[in-house]
Design a protein around this nucleic acid. Structure first.
Lengths: 203, 203, 203, 203
DNA sequence: AATGAATGAGGTTTCATTCAT
DNA sequence: TATGAATGAAACCTCATTCAT
């Protein structure tokens, strides 16, 4: 459909230049569609950007959700989720850039939408952490900081995604491994020679 | 001096609107200085932004460096560094926003400067990790992923800084604690009831 | 076409104020076209001025070339060329002003273009002088100063064109006559009562 | 005196950039005097330019007048006047540029002043022509075109002056010679081998 | 349904000119 | 007296947005 064609172009252009410097002229050129069409289908520049964010957010959520196996152990769920996330970032780099970099920089409504998306990711992670801890009684302080831990983990994952752009030789499995080792085992264990490995290496 | 007055205003305005939407008119209004003065003291808009980034980068580095005690154990150094970092973010929120959000979004030279700053932080952390691991022989895979771990830790710290803005009731000590627990102990230990605490609680 | 409409206005405005003081606002007002149209059709102010110069140069060359009859005697060719020139100056005064006064004053690329135009005129005249002199052997010194004589003649013609603006009662035929008498006969002959007159008065 | 220092700088700057693009900042810099001083001594930019024109006009007139020997024959007077003129142009190129190119381009009052100067030159030449012709009865048509001839001669002289800038190997004597041959003898005589030479070669 | 053509509004930058010292 | 410091005004240029076809 025309709408998709336009959105694809918009994501590409917004990703490259950012919201404000991006020009509707360039979007129309890349989309191969005249400007009045853009306004007819998607509304103003602001509307267009909102549509971009919404579509890419949904894509990202779908991609991650599709990778998770709820029947597995918490650490394996996290592991699969991370790999799905990095596969998405790899395949739709422009989407990721728009969501993570450009939308937040604009602030206002856009940043709010992105923060909601992040919140969903954080809560998803928080559930995993909680279920992992349900075997034992988590220390009080940990209980309280549950969300904080999730925020940190999500942030770490995002930063590695950015860093990946400049270090493309790394695979998405390595990225996910590092994170698992870092947050599941911690430095403390690492220096003692422990390593986290997927219980199901084939996955 | 006039220069500082202008830079303060510029950081504030760039932080709020981002580089492109920010107008020199608004900078001049906030600074209480006419536009030609800005051009006389700091040059073009691009120059002005560069000056902002440079000054705030230096401030951030100084703040973190000032908080580190090289004679302490690695984990304590990290702990102090993180607290200094969060104190800086708290005290100079606009500086942090300009550096972390706006400069990266603009891309080009600006993003390069920020990435250099990040790289410095990452290397600093990498040194700590290495010194912590020197007691034992780090697993090969850890050796290779050293920088990745540091990237992840730095990213986690940054994300928590952003998240803090929307959750101001948390203290900088709590943020640092969470991170220490997360990366030093890891979930694995946490669920077993272990907790990381500063060896020198007074610090 | 729109382009012509804009160029006409630009020539008028540049002619009146000169390149630098002329404002794109005024050009757009005179052209009855909004400023963005000017930039869309003709580019920057510099581009616009270049287009003006090019068009008017071509017009001037065409006008003079159209008036010359190559089959006539050299003096008659000069006579006709001069009259064509003055007719052009009369009909397109703004064009002449832009070419002769404003473009030269700006210097740089503009002046270069004008000087090339002048050079063409000079060479044209030089050819006439040479063909007139071919019947006899021109004195050596004359040979060497051929271009200088042409420069002087062209300059004299230009100056009379300027002077004409303030003395509009004179006809273009009179101007051409004076020049012919001056350069073809010279004062020396004039004071002896000689006069140059077109051999074909009807022309 | 301060005034002279400023005027020298102004002539230099106006000559190089033209009236409008020239900046008071540059004048003050070249003059080694602060801007408020310029305003105190010479008034506004317009006033400053007027002063420049007036001073250089006077200089030019003086230079030419000083070279003329009223007791000589008319052609010799013209010859001496032309050489003085070219010597002035050579020695004070900036003055000449300001007067001939820049002032006329600005138009308005400035052009008027320059035109008055030209008129003086023209009348001076017209007197010579008239005195040369007084021996015989000039043809009626010549009488009427007297001023026109003078205008043409002056224009030719000016154009050669401009042309000289790009052909510096020519001497001022050659320039004056060409003009004398052109206007005093005319092409007609030149092709017959006649040449005008100063009756007093030492001069 | 689709677009070429057009513009109002606003942004960066410069410069003649003047206070306060 | 002489100047460093300051600004109001205006110029060039661009872009989101809309008619008329």
């Amino acid at each position: 459909m025309r709408e998709r064609q336009i959105l694809d172009a918009a994501v590409q252009v917004f990703s490259r230049y950012g919201y404000h410097p991006a020009s509707m002229d360039e979007v129309s050129e890349v989309a191969g569609v005249s400007k009045p069409m853009i306004y007819a289908y998607l509304g103003s520049k602001e509307d267009l950007f909102t549509h971009c964010i919404r579509r890419e957010s949904a894509r990202l959520l779908d991609a991650v959700a599709a990778g998770i196996r709820p029947e597995l152990a918490p650490d394996m769920q996290l592991w699969h989720g991370l790999r799905s996330f990095y596969r998405f970032v790899h395949e739709y780099r422009d989407s990721w850039t728009v969501l993570h970099r450009q939308a937040l920089a604009v602030g206002g409504t856009f940043a709010d939408e992105i923060n909601q998306l992040r919140q969903q990711a954080i809560e998803l992670v928080a559930v995993l952490v909680k279920s992992a801890g349900s075997r034992a009684e988590l220390a009080d302080q940990v209980q309280k900081s549950g969300e904080g831990l999730a925020v940190a983990l999500v942030g770490a994952a995002e930063s590695l995604a950015d860093w990946w752009i400049d270090h493309p030789s790394v695979t998405e499995g390595m990225l996910a491994s590092w994170l698992m080792n870092l947050v599941w085992l911690g430095f403390n264990d690492l220096v003692e020679g422990k390593l986290w490995t997927p219980s199901d290496p084939a996955a």
